[in-house]
Design a protein around this nucleic acid. Structure first.
Lengths: 112, 112
DNA sequence: TTATTTTCTCTACTATGTAGAAATCGTGGC
DNA sequence: GCCACGATTTCTACATAGTAGAGAAAATAA
């Protein structure tokens, strides 16, 4: 990428999911959020790999929460955006927006 | 990707550029369009590789135009979206939009 | 202590993104 | 014709991101 700064497509989705979920942003929940909203099936491995890479880049950081008192209530690793993460989202969003400018969606079938 | 259907980040940008440029969508011009709008530096190799991959997937198709009568006016290979390409753009856009829903941009620095 | 639930970890592989030099195909000048 | 030059495309190699799914952990319940 241009200086390794741009977000991948899925990275962007994950970041947005973490943002939306605020204090409830842990792996399984992030997976579900993306799956429900975008209607695609997201595997858990994809989510964690991305979460780890975003953490390594310093765009999010992890925090281990206490286990909840329910069956299978294992401790969750929850995430939130860092300042750099916020900037990255803003930038990606701006870039995408600038390419959409003036186009009307949905595009009609025979748009040509 | 989920069934290999989703567009990569750069693929999406390239598709949008091709769309915007309509009959003037050839490699160099696409490169410039993306560079100017998104403010990032895009190398020509990245553009052609992506254009080729999108062609292979049937999302755009190429057409060799006549050379223009100017110095260095070599024949251009220009592209336009296929029906599948239009659908792909619509879908990516819808997915992204659904993840943005309710968020206000730009995100404030201390959004957490 | 075994079953069951939820979440997380790990490994391997495929697809996308990136870079830049080199090849092509035109023009224009001598 | 031959050579310089400009615009565009092609090629090759490598880095990063996306995907998949089995399996390990950690908790509750019986």
């Amino acid at each position: 990428m241009a200086k390794g700064e741009s977000l991948g497509e899925f990275e962007y989705l994950v970041l947005l999911a973490v943002l939306r979920l605020s204090d409830d942003a842990y792996g399984m929940r992030v997976r579900r959020e993306i799956a429900e909203r975008t209607q695609r099936d997201v595997t858990i491995g994809a989510v964690y790999a991305t979460l780890d890479r975003l953490t390594a880049k310093g765009l999010i950081n992890a925090e281990l929460s206490d286990p909840t008192p329910e069956r299978g209530g294992r401790a969750k690793r929850s995430f939130h955006l860092t300042g750099a993460g916020i900037q990255a989202v803003n930038r990606s969003r701006r870039e995408l927006e600038s390419m959409l400018e003036g186009l009307a969606f949905p595009l009609p079938r025979g748009s040509r």
